[in-house]
Amino acid sequence: MASPLATQLTRLVDQISTIIVGKRPQIEDCVACLLAGGHLLIEDVPGVGKTTLAHALAVSLGLRFSRVQFTADLMPSDLIGVSVYERSKEAFVFHPGPVFAQVLLADEINRAGPKTQSALLEAMEEQQVSVEGATRALPRPFFVIATQNPNDQLGTYALPESQLDRFLMCITLGYPDRSSERALLAGKDRREAIQSLQPVMTPDELLAAQKAVLAVHASDALLDYLQALIAATRSGRWFVEGLSPRAGIAVLRAAKAHALLDQRDYVAPDDIQAILAQTVAHRLMPMAGAGRGRAEQVRAMVQAVALP
């Protein structure tokens, strides 16, 4: 019999799947990223459901949701907040910005300038912001879903590798298949459908689920396999530079979250293989002449590394 937590997580994925039709693997990746305590980057063309996914996730978890449309003129204070002098109180009063949410959608992050991008990524890393000398903690849980347009589109600023590394996962939704698109065309508006959703977990239950991820067991043989994959990225055969220790920890956390979603209390090699491309491809650059994209190069490397 499935545990209460496993039942809740299944209901969560099922409910979001009624809004984002035909994208269950990507929804599971999104939930796994949240359970692992990381942040998610979605790179795709406009209009495929990135904003809808973020909103449906927040409503299904009873979390405060905020959306910021990143533009070239967006300033860090527009995101973090600002202190305003109020005559009635004869003092400056801090007005928090949209970053003080539990699920923050940073829409088209690569359309904002580097200074604003850095302000968001600092908040992601530190779970707090500094405003006029005062440190203010962000709410818990705090989950950022950033969307990014392809870099060949006009008016975009590519995120540097050091900033990409702050995202636990990077996924692509892609276009729906024919039957899923037909369901979207024939069904009611997705925004209306979101309003009818009910939370399947409370914020406290989500925090407990994030703690449960840390308790998922990883055997010595499993860690040997993970280290073999990390070593392969550093061999000079597949990528220009290999994974950092922080990236290796990110892979393990994501694999533990995937195992929990699969209703197991231990990590299997299948868990690592299932999340590896989404967790490391955006951190790696294939060798010149590889003839493959980042994710395809990761999958080719996995095929070449022996299982334990």
Rank of each mutant, 00 (worst) to 15 (best):
S3A: 04
G49A: 06
P46E: 04
D271N: 06
G47M: 12
L12C: 00
R140G: 00
G62I: 11
K50C: 03
D165C: 05
D270W: 04
T233I: 02
L41N: 07
L223N: 11
T202C: 01
L185S: 01
E181T: 06
G97M: 11
Y175C: 02
Q8W: 05
Q102L: 08
L226Q: 12
T10V: 08
V302G: 07
G97R: 15
L207I: 07
S83N: 10
F100C: 02
D270R: 13
V213C: 09
Q227I: 07
G37S: 09
P308C: 08
Y225V: 03
R264L: 08
A300S: 05
I19Y: 00
A277F: 06
Q227N: 15
M285C: 05
R64Q: 12
V48H: 14
G174R: 11
M169Y: 14
V131K: 03
S235T: 04
C30K: 03
T172Y: 10
Y85D: 00
D78N: 15
I42E: 06
I80P: 11
V68P: 04
A186W: 00
M201D: 01
A255N: 04
T147V: 05
A281Q: 06
P76S: 00
S88H: 14
V216S: 10
L164C: 10
D14F: 11
S179Y: 13
W238E: 06
A101I: 12
V13D: 13
P160M: 06
L138Q: 06
A277I: 03
G62C: 08
S235N: 02
L207S: 11
L138P: 00
Q69M: 11
N151M: 14
L79W: 10
D270Q: 10
V213T: 06
Q117Y: 07
F167G: 00
V240M: 05
A146G: 13
R294W: 06
G81F: 04
Y157H: 13
V103I: 12
K256W: 09
Q273C: 11
I27A: 02
G174W: 03
A6P: 08
Q117F: 08
V280P: 14
P160S: 06
A259L: 13
V216P: 12
R190D: 07
T116F: 10
N151G: 15
L229G: 06
V213L: 09
M75R: 09
A91H: 09
L207F: 01
Q278A: 15
E181I: 03
D224H: 12
